[in-house]
Write a protein that binds this DNA or RNA. Structure first.
Length: 266
DNA sequence: AGCGTCACCCGGACGC
DNA sequence: TGCGTCCGGGTGACGC
């Protein structure tokens, strides 16, 4: 399921084949993918625009076009690929952008949760997102201030995109394990050392995953090699890499949460 | 403010 | 083998 590292991997892969390409035509096979504007208006508005640049904000892909911005959220099962129009059809490619060059950008999404947004100002979509955890401006001090500004359990706090952008279930569990912090620990009770440990583990975990070109646990999403490096996520019952005790799985806010009961004390 | 619950989807895993 | 059922994921809406 694409989180920050997976989206970053896709962004890097798409730049070369997409930047500079002119969108000739759009095929929309499932209209609800188009969050805004309506499907008809979407096609009309996007055709003729050229992709200027591709970036990421949180889990959104941000494609700068001639006059508008195209934002894509992949949710759990979305994927983007550029292929020649002669490539075999993909039954889950619900929206396809046809380039003047003959290639096409396919947005395929088995579970149909993904959404695309065509707007003048990207802030209409990403305006409420919290800071980027890998930015130079995201210091240990800043994370400390965020933690102390909330009275919440760490796990749901990390998943809240308005607090920190881009962290999902995998990297929340992995970061908390590396920082030896219990997922239900209240954010305002962390000592400065613990906040610094979380800051370091969060950045380390995300950077490592980008280096490994992301993870894939849900096999619906292709993903990279990082899934072989999980310490806690999806390892219920398997030994903790630090102490050897079995990893436990609990539900926190309806989300599967994996942690080591020995290393991550309440 | 923070938390719980539901809805949106469907491939894959599981039980029979 | 084949069928039915459940699960899980990110997020937004809603109620407490």
């Amino acid at each position: 399921m694409p989180e920050l590292p997976e989206v970053e991997t896709i962004v890097r892969a798409l730049r070369a084949p997409c930047v500079g390409q002119r969108i000739e035509r759009v095929t929309i096979k499932w209209k609800r993918h188009i969050a805004t504007p309506g499907a008809k208006q979407f096609s009309k508005q996007i055709c003729g625009q050229t992709i200027r640049d591709i970036n990421r904000r949180g889990k959104f892909l941000v494609l700068g076009l001639t006059t508008d911005t195209l934002l894509i959220h992949l949710k759990m099962s979305g994927d983007l690929t550029v292929v020649p129009q002669s490539a075999p059809p993909d039954k889950h490619a619900h929206t396809v952008f046809h380039f003047a060059s003959g290639n096409e950008l396919r947005f395929s999404d088995t579970r149909k949760f993904g959404r695309v947004y065509l707007v003048r100002d990207p802030a209409e979509v990403t305006g409420d997102l919290g800071p980027e955890p890998l930015d130079d401006t995201f210091t240990a001090r800043k994370l400390g201030d965020i933690l102390h500004g909330h009275h919440r359990a760490l796990k749901p706090l990390l998943l809240d995109q308005t607090v920190i952008a881009g962290v999902g279930n995998i990297y929340a569990d992995e970061s908390l394990h590396r920082a030896r912090l219990h997922p239900l620990r209240r954010s305002h009770t962390l000592t400065p050392d613990e906040a610094r440990a979380l800051w370091r583990s969060l950045r380390y975990t995300l950077n490592q995953a980008i280096r490994n070109q992301g993870s894939s646990i849900d096999r619906v999403y292709r993903g990279g090699e990082h899934q072989n490096h999980f310490r806690a996520y999806d390892r219920t019952g398997e030994p903790c890499p630090v102490c050897g005790r079995p990893i436990r799985r609990i539900l926190v806010g309806q989300r599967g949460t994996h942690y080591c009961p020995n290393c991550q004390r309440p």
